[in-house]
Design a protein around this nucleic acid. Structure first.
Lengths: 221, 221
DNA sequence: GGCGGTGTCGAACACTGTTCGGCATTATCG
DNA sequence: CGATAATGCCGAACAGTGTTCGACACCGCC
């Protein structure tokens, strides 16, 4: 039923390949015409096959979204594994900022993928147990990274997830392709770090009311 | 074409009434079965009519969503008109918090309405010019309220919109009916006020690094 | 050569939003 | 009052959807 990492038979591996082709084509169509902007007949044509044939590889249209959902979170986990919130020089904020920039870049680089992963854009779709597990794993990874810089309180974690998805969401829905909210990220990190008490290495390790970015901004006009 | 506030003819007023009935039934069905979980035949049955009849009052199914969208923002404007961010005693944070509690209560009290207003959940739906104007009016009202307490910088406004919709979004999608993110709102307001320099009236008007709520929390085991 | 899988598809089903023509009922006016 | 125009409503149909089923063709194997 589930395709484990080790599919033995040759026919099984060929079937997995076509399934991958189906998912790839679904991604492309989703990016071109929106997540719900394509039909199974259209997808079949893109794969070079007729609609009923798809059902030999996939249980339903929603199952395709499930594969895509899982693939998105797997990519996220692969990318996030390289992040580190702790800095060798002790400048935790800098490492924090760099990682969050990576997170927002990952999200904004593919709005379609973001919508599938974070929003409920596809009617009737809810991830399967195994696909959902991939997203939970990602959150656990995030939690571990935050612990590296001493943030372990649930309320603080919740507050930061709200801030980061809020920024990302606003960026993607209200200024796609721009940086109106992306450019606020560093200031948001400083604001949050001030709030939870992560010292600013650039001010001699003191927890200051960091308005650096705002002062810079106020000096333009 | 558009139903202005003063529809003269009696037949027109009767038509407006049925149109309202249609929209009301659409709200109810949306709350029961999801925004996209009902068909026009189903909606027609709820109104006591057959599907084609709906087209005498409404251009399309998407037009129904448009009416709902506009109605949602009109309600928001009506509610938000009563908010004030400035406090007679000078405690701007308290007034700010109260208003934002009102905002989050408005959003979480009807997740379906929130999804239609803030998320892109209905495929192919984008608000019409006039409906969009209602949401813009709401933002202008928000901007005016923020100006009452001295927050006029675009970046600060963008940052706070990100935070508030981030909290609301997380609350609705990850803890519907609960208060896991709602209860973080006051702390978020303090964090934001510290950041932008709105004085805390409870500490003698000084801009302090306000960790009051967090200290309370940390004292619990 | 026959045979069980495997892969593919045509046809069909129930459903969707939407359109059109025609039927009643009602309102207007000579 | 009676003819006429307008209005409200709906049955039937169209093109499209996701999905199912039965029937083809092909394949390696005994």
């Amino acid at each position: 039923m589930f395709d484990t990492a080790e599919s033995s038979s040759l026919a099984d591996r060929r079937a997995d390949a076509t399934r991958d082709a189906i998912v790839d084509a679904a991604w492309q169509l989703s990016r071109e015409q929106g997540l719900t902007g394509w039909s199974l007949r259209e997808l079949a044509r893109a794969v070079g096959v007729k609609a009923p044939t798809l059902y030999a590889y996939v249980d339903s249209k929603l199952a395709i979204y499930d594969l895509m959902f899982r693939q998105g979170w797997d990519e996220m986990n692969r990318v996030a594994a390289r992040w580190s919130f702790a800095d060798p020089d002790g400048d935790h904020r800098r490492a924090f900022k760099r990682s969050m920039q990576g997170f927002m870049a990952f999200c904004t680089s593919d709005p379609t993928r973001y919508h599938l992963m974070f929003q409920r854009i596809v009617p009737d779709f809810s991830p399967s147990e195994t696909a959902y597990a991939a997203s939970v794993a990602s959150y656990e990874q995030f939690r571990a990274h935050m612990a590296e810089i001493g943030i372990t309180d649930d309320a603080d974690l919740d507050l930061w997830t709200a801030i980061s998805v809020g920024l990302t969401d606003q960026q993607i829905t209200n200024d796609p392709g721009g940086d109106r909210w992306t450019r606020l990220l560093d200031a948001a990190v400083d604001m949050f770090c001030d709030h939870v008490g992560i010292p600013d290495a650039t001010t001699g390790g003191q927890i200051a009311n960091n308005r650096q970015t705002n002062h810079d901004r106020e000096q333009r006009p």
